[in-house]
Write a protein that binds this DNA or RNA. Sequence first.
DNA 1: CTATTTTTATTGGATAACCGATAACTATAT
DNA 2: ATATAGTTATCGGTTATCCAATAAAAATAG
Lengths: 103, 103
Amino acid sequence: MKGFLSFIMLWLISKKAMTGTDIALEIKKRKGTKPSPGTIYPALKYLRNKGLIKVNQKKTYTLTRAGKKELESQLNFFFGTFCDLDEMKACCKSLKQQNKRYI
Amino acid sequence: MKGFLSFIMLWLISKKAMTGTDIALEIKKRKGTKPSPGTIYPALKYLRNKGLIKVNQKKTYTLTRAGKKELESQLNFFFGTFCDLDEMKACCKSLKQQNKRYI
DNA sequence: CTATTTTTATTGGATAACCGATAACTATAT
DNA sequence: ATATAGTTATCGGTTATCCAATAAAAATAG
């Protein structure tokens, strides 16, 4: 299960201005694995080149207006693709019960 | 925004037994783009080789028990990574308003 | 002000994801 | 039985994703 990295990064940055390390740590908290610098910084550079984020003297990244528009579009795409989130959540719980019985 | 394909496929198959074409059409409905046969069938083969899905005479795919466990684990991962879905949804709406003003 | 550590960033390369083109198989019709 | 249409599947190659290793820059300590 790969991808979605730049989407998550845009989302995190939109919530709060963050440094590269901040982002890596927040992703670790969510996914369990901390992305390496070789993952984070090229992604930040890519987003910067596309004009979606900007960085200040403190190495803190924030969204540009274009970044906000891009995030909006990606959020729409996300909720379109996962249009049955409630069902997914319910399934998640019921599967947990089912699988328990067969261990 | 790539990836997540096999996750979506497991999820769709778990809801209803499906053929390759069924899956492609459902993904088209959600994402807008219909994945090509060269995307769908290798992915199905991969999942079959891993013992996560099985296929019957009618070319209809269903989850195996291992597939259900795998789906559970991926659902947990998904909701762990996107632990703030409500916030994302709210942001999606408010961004739509903000961006409108600047067109 | 130098040395050390920490953070930020780049590079090269390995792997995975994906598609276009094409082939094989199935089903239906003639 | 043969042709046609549609579905299922494979293959080769392109691009994207991601990491390990390394370098550069910044912060902190001595």
